[in-house]
């Protein structure tokens, strides 16, 4: 569905240089700290910033720039921008009808009611949660094939986040060939939603893994200095010094469960993985 190969964009003090793929029927996450390059990567894909080099393949074709038809097949949420705040939701319906022949007005109106989005109020007077819900609703209302979502749940309470994630799950359930590329710094959202995820730091992708594999096979071993000396380090990816010893990130926790019964092994979620990958040392 989407393939970025060595997409490069340089600013003074920062260079984005990344490659990743979002296959058909999958939800892929892009995770990274603030300033890691997530938004720049999204903007480079969408043509909002010019790529210095690299190739972009979308819907099976290599693209220099996105055509109107390509954009019609995309649903986009940007972290800090949406429809003009001086428009009402009713106004956006008229605009979306004009831009997207496949815009589903009945669906959109029904969802506005379910999500408590007033049709006649100016968007500037919406709460953060209402604005976020509107952005995602707009992205899923015109039968897009690929959603590109930059921080769609940022700054939201758990209820609003759940409503947005439900919208995305429903979107994926409607057609199995649809795909989503989503960025978020709320790992819990991505763990429940994504099939796989990429980690980005200082403009570079440094880790890619299937979510199921992460949750079932990765773990954090808590060991003392002596235990570390005797441990089989075959499946250890990173180590981090702690006040009581070491935290070790492993990608085969079952091996250690079976062979090192005395060692404490904790579940590794995305947050733990980010900490270990960014702050830990390579073995």
């Amino acid at each position: 569905m989407l393939k970025c190969t060595n997409i490069r964009k340089s600013y003074p003090g920062f260079t984005l240089d990344c490659s990743f793929t979002v296959p058909s029927g999958r939800i892929s996450g892009l995770i990274g700290a603030n300033g890691a390059g997530k938004s720049t990567a999204f903007k480079a894909i969408l043509g909002l910033v010019r790529r210095d080099s690299g190739t972009l393949s979308l819907f099976g074709e290599e693209k220099e720039a996105l055509s109107e038809e390509d954009k019609r097949r995309l649903g986009v949420v940007l972290a800090d921008a949406g429809y003009n705040p001086y428009l009402t939701v009713e106004d956006t319906i008229l605009i979306q009808k004009a831009f997207y022949p496949a815009f589903r007005e009945d669906f959109f109106r029904q969802k506005c009611q379910e999500l408590d989005l007033p049709l006649q109020k100016l968007i500037k007077d919406f709460s953060t949660g209402m604005k976020a819900k509107l952005r995602v609703l707009c992205a899923v209302s015109h039968d897009a094939d690929l959603l590109i979502l930059d921080e769609p749940t940022a700054g939201l309470d758990v209820l609003a986040r759940d409503q947005i994630l439900d919208l995305l799950r429903d979107f994926m359930a409607e057609k199995e060939e649809r795909s989503v590329l989503i960025s978020s710094h709320i790992s819990a959202d991505l763990e429940t939603l994504c099939d796989d995820f990429y980690m980005i730091d200082r403009g570079k992708i440094f880790f890619h893994e299937e979510t199921d594999r992460l949750l079932s096979e990765y773990g954090i071993l808590k060991v003392t200095e002596e235990e570390l000396q005797q441990l089989d380090l075959r499946y250890i990816r990173r180590k981090r010094k702690e006040s009581w010893g070491y935290s070790l990130l492993c990608d085969q926790k079952r091996y250690y469960f079976e062979n090192c019964p005395g060692i404490t092994i904790e579940k590794a979620g995305i947050d733990e993985l980010i900490m270990m990958m960014l702050k830990g040392e390579e073995i």
Binding site: K43, L46, G47, L48, S67, E68, E69, K71, R72, L74, V76, L78, D80, A81, G82, Y83, N84, P85, Y86, F99, Y100, K124
Partner: peptide
């Protein structure tokens, strides 16, 4: 100026139209 309020122009340019349009 309206297009530039709250960076809405960056979202605007993800909608299906070309620069010439």
């Amino acid at each position: 100026s309206y297009d530039e309020i709250d960076h809405s122009d960056s979202f605007l340019f993800t909608l299906p139209f070309s620069g010439r349009t």
